[in-house]
């Protein structure tokens, strides 16, 4: 099997060009998936038999929570690749993931809180799922701050990658917290091996928004990655044609 395409992913000019080409398609796919899913979920899906129309918060809460975990996993993997194989583009990917993941962790926490108030009678409880998601937010803040805390950017990148790897233990804790401990939070709506706990008319819009959010993550990651590559490679010869000096 020819692995050239894979090895080229370590090359900043190749990644920059790839991100430039992919981003518009990812933004377009994200817009379609999110628009269809939100319209169908908010207006045309039937109300839940227990939660009524309040369940519709799932169409923004679950994708935000999923994106917060996906961004963290991507960031930790990219950091690991950079640390183990000394592939510098991994640090750029990790740096690009952090603000996206942090913003959607805030989104997941606030929308969860707004869902919790009518369903549980409180905006916040020190529940395992909520607490571990809050820890995820602090991890994101810590990683972003740590990267900027060093005068030498390379040391900042390494320190942030190590903290990212240490913190990845929190990802399965968040995911399985509703099974491992008594939790106010409902169980998984979508599980790998189990039948979904909602009918198709509710599920299809949710899957559409989830797919849209994943594409959105990819699109914003491409844009942020281009910025990271430009900053890190600004003294390189190949940058000259990218920034097109008149």
């Amino acid at each position: 099997m020819n692995w050239t395409w894979f090895h080229r992913l370590a090359s900043p000019p190749h990644v920059y060009r790839l991100a430039t080409r992919l981003a518009p398609w990812l933004y377009a796919g994200a817009a379609l998936g999110i628009a269809y899913g939100l319209i169908a979920g908010l207006f045309f899906a039937p109300p839940d038999y227990q939660q009524g129309d309040a369940f519709r918060i799932i169409y923004v809460h679950a994708p935000s929570a999923w994106l917060s975990l996906s961004a963290y996993t991507t960031m930790a993997l990219a950091g690991a690749v950079a640390l183990v194989w000394r592939i510098k583009i991994g640090y750029a990917v990790a740096a690009a993931c952090a603000p996206i993941g942090a913003s959607f962790t805030i989104g997941a926490l606030i929308t969860g809180s707004l869902w919790g108030r009518p369903m549980w009678g409180t905006y916040w409880a020190w529940d395992p799922r909520l607490t571990s998601e809050l820890i995820l937010l602090f991890l994101y803040f810590g990683i972003i701050s740590l990267r900027q805390a060093f005068d030498d950017p390379a040391r900042g990148d390494r320190a942030a990658a190590v903290l990212g790897l240490v913190g990845v233990v929190n990802v399965p804790i968040i995911h399985y917290s509703v099974q491992w401990w008594n939790s106010l939070h409902q169980g998984a709506t979508l599980a790998k091996w189990a039948k979904p706990s909602m009918p198709g008319s509710m599920l299809v819009p949710l899957l559409s928004v989830l797919l849209g959010f994943m594409l959105f993550f990819g699109a914003v990651l491409c844009t942020r990655l281009r910025a990271e590559v430009l900053v890190r490679e600004r003294q390189s010869n190949w940058i000259n044609e990218m920034v097109s000096i008149p």
Binding site: L42, D53, R56, V60, S64, F104, G107, L114
Partner: peptide
């Protein structure tokens, strides 16, 4: 169904996050 404040503020927040990103 009476949950408009909760549902629409959640939707507005997440749409705002998408735009901010």
């Amino acid at each position: 169904g009476g949950y408009a404040a909760f549902v629409w503020s959640s939707v507005a927040l997440v749409l705002g996050l998408l735009v901010w990103n």
